[in-house]
C-alpha cells in the first residue's frame, strides 16, 4: 500500500507546490504507516527531473509519457491518475491545490468514490476517525472536517508542511494508461505563460502594488524591488481591472490567494477583499502614505510614507544587506 501524489510540471520542471505535496504525503505516510510515497507524472518531462522528486520523499515516480498529456487536459489527466491510483492500490491521493489540480481532483473524487477535502493546512488527525483541518471563508477561518469514505483525496494548501529536501533519488517507472478519445475531446489551442519570472501562486516573497502607485509607468520600482528579493509581483483588483497589470497578478478574494513567507503591500489600502487573499502570509509589510490605511492593522511591519520615496530606498537598503 502506498500514498499516491499527483505531481504537475511546467517548462520541464516539477512545480514546487507539487514537491510540497510529496513532502506532505511523506509526513502522512510516516504518521499513518501507509507505506511508501509514489508520485505520478503525466506528459513529456525528463526522467532526470523526476528522479529528483525523491528528495521530497517519494520512492517511485510513475510516468505516463504520452505527449498528449503534457498540456493539462483535465479529463485525460483525471483518467490517467485514476489508473495510477488503481495500480498503486492505496487509499490516499495527495495533490497541491492549483488551477489544474482542483479541476482534476474533483473529477477523481467521483471516479474513485473518494472523499475530497481542499485547502488542507496540516496533517490529518487520525487518532479517532480521520479529521482534516482546512482553510475556509477565504482564509478567515478553519474547519475540522471528518471524512467518512475509505478512499481520500487531500488538496494541499501552500505551506501546509515544510518542504523536505533530504530524500534520496526516486526510481522512475513507465506507466501505461488507456485514455479514450472522448477524454481528449477538448483542445488546448494556445498557452500563454509568463516565463522566467517567479510565479505568483508559488512565490515565497510577493511584492504587490495598488492604486497608490498612480499608473503602470511606475511599476518599475515594484519590479526592481521584486528582482532584488527574487519575488513575484502582484497587484490589487482595481489595478488589474484598469489594465495596469495583467489579470493573473490580481491578489485577493476574487483573485489569487497567496501564502508567501513575506508579502510587501505598496500603495494598497487593505480592503477586506484584498486581505482575504493574503491572510495566510507569514509576514506582512505595508508601505502606505496614509497612517489610517486599514492594511496597517493586518501588518507585521509598516512604513508610513510616500511609496515613491520609500520603495527605492528600501531597494537600496536590501541590496546592501543581501
Amino acid at each position: 500500500m502506498s500514498v499516491l501524489v499527483y505531481i504537475e510540471h511546467a517548462e520541464g520542471k516539477v512545480k514546487k507546490t507539487s514537491l510540497e505535496a510529496v513532502s506532505f504525503a511523506h509526513a502522512l505516510a510516516q504518521k499513518t504507516g501507509e507505506g511508501e510515497v509514489v508520485a505520478v507524472a503525466l506528459g513529456s518531462i525528463d526522467s532526470a527531473e523526476l528522479v529528483k522528486v525523491g528528495s521530497a520523499g517519494a520512492t517511485k515516480v510513475l510516468h505516463a509519457g504520452d505527449d498528449r498529456l503534457t498540456a493539462g487536459v483535465i479529463q485525460a489527466h483525471a483518467s490517467a491518475v485514476a489508473q495510477a491510483f488503481e495500480k498503486v492500490g492505496g487509499k490516499t491521493l495527495i495533490l497541491a491545490k492549483s488551477s489544474l489540480g482542483d479541476a482534476v481532483a474533483a473529477r477523481l473524487a467521483i471516479k474513485l468514490e473518494a472523499g475530497l477535502v481542499s485547502n488542507v493546512v496540516e496533517l490529518p488527525d487520525t487518532s479517532s476517525g480521520y479529521t482534516v483541518k482546512r482553510s475556509i471563508y477565504t482564509g478567515k477561518a478553519f474547519a475540522f472536517t471528518a471524512l467518512t469514505t475509505e478512499k481520500k483525496i487531500l488538496a494541499i494548501k501552500k505551506n501546509a508542511v515544510d518542504l523536505k529536501t533530504d530524500g534520496g533519488d526516486a526510481s522512475v517507472e513507465p506507466l501505461e494508461v488507456t485514455i479514450s478519445d472522448a477524454d481528449f475531446a477538448s483542445k488546448i489551442t494556445n498557452t500563454e505563460r509568463a516565463t522566467g519570472d517567479v510565479l505568483l501562486p508559488e512565490a515565497d516573497i510577493v511584492v504587490s502594488g495598488g492604486r497608490g502607485m498612480k499608473g503602470p509607468e511606475n511599476w518599475g520600482m515594484i519590479e526592481d524591488l521584486a528582482k532584488t528579493l527574487g519575488a513575484a509581483t502582484g497587484c490589487s483588483k482595481p489595478v488589474s481591472d484598469i489594465g495596469w497589470r495583467p489579470h493573473h497578478e490580481h491578489v485577493g478574494q476574487t483573485g489569487i490567494k497567496v501564502a508567501p513567507s513575506l508579502y510587501i503591500a505598496i500603495g494598497i489600502s487593505g480592503a477586506i477583499q484584498h486581505l482575504a487573499g493574503v491572510n495566510s502570509s507569514k509576514c506582512i509589510v505595508v508601505i502606505n502614505k496614509d497612517p489610517e490605511a486599514p492594511f496597517f492593522k493586518a501588518a507585521d511591519y509598516g512604513i508610513v510614507g510616500d511609496a515613491f520615496e520609500v520603495v527605492p530606498k528600501l531597494n537600496e537598503a536590501l541590496k546592501a544587506e543581501l
Binding site: 512545480k15 488551477s99 483542445k187 488546448i188 489551442t189 498557452t191 500563454e192 508559488e202 493573473h248
Partner: peptide
C-alpha cells in the same frame, strides 16, 4: 493557469 492562461 498559474502565471498565465490557456485557450481552449
Amino acid at each position: 493557469i498559474e502565471g498565465g492562461k490557456e485557450m481552449l
